[in-house]
């Protein structure tokens, strides 16, 4: 980071460092995914409860149903997105050395995106009967 004058107001130190137009983007997406998850978590838990004690074939058939497959994929996207945004804030708050923080951020993004892609692929594979 450039020289930061501790006696300047934060705004003065931030000026000239680039656009701040995306300042609320994280906040807004975190809330939108939260609202989506309020509903999708109820659906997901209800699906799991309804599958309690059922065998492999019926679990697969349930996931293969188009309504379930679509809602599951929506749930997975919202969940991994929300998780990444949450972990980003945790890392920003607790991991102070800039290099270490950046490595953590990139690892969290890679893990969340990979897990999202893999689990969506699994649902699609089941839904298409492959």
């Amino acid at each position: 980071m450039n020289h930061v004058d501790p006696m300047r107001a934060p705004l003065k130190n931030a000026r000239g460092l680039g656009s701040a137009r995306h300042g609320t983007h994280h906040f807004i997406i975190q809330r939108i995914t939260a609202i989506a998850l309020l509903v999708l978590v109820i659906y997901f838990v209800a699906l799991l409860v309804s599958l309690a004690g059922s065998d492999y074939a019926s679990a697969r058939a349930a996931v293969a149903h188009p309504v379930n497959a679509i809602l599951l994929i929506a749930f997975l996207i919202a969940m991994f997105w929300h998780g990444q945004l949450g972990m980003q804030v945790v890392i920003e708050d607790y991991v102070h050395p800039p290099g270490k923080a950046m490595v953590f951020q990139v690892v969290v993004i890679f893990v969340c995106v990979l897990a999202a892609v893999a689990s969506i692929f699994a649902v699609v594979r089941i839904a298409l009967g492959a």
Binding site: Y56, R60, L72, L76, G83, A115, A116, S119, A122
Partner: peptide, 26 residues
């Protein structure tokens, strides 16, 4: 929240197992 992020990876693993076959699912 941190616990649930770890849990989300278990959900992904379970779905992959379900797609893989009956043995993995068992």
């Amino acid at each position: 929240g941190i616990i649930l992020v770890v849990g989300s990876l278990l959900i992904a693993a379970a779905l992959l197992a379900l797609a893989q076959g009956a043995d993995a699912w068992s």
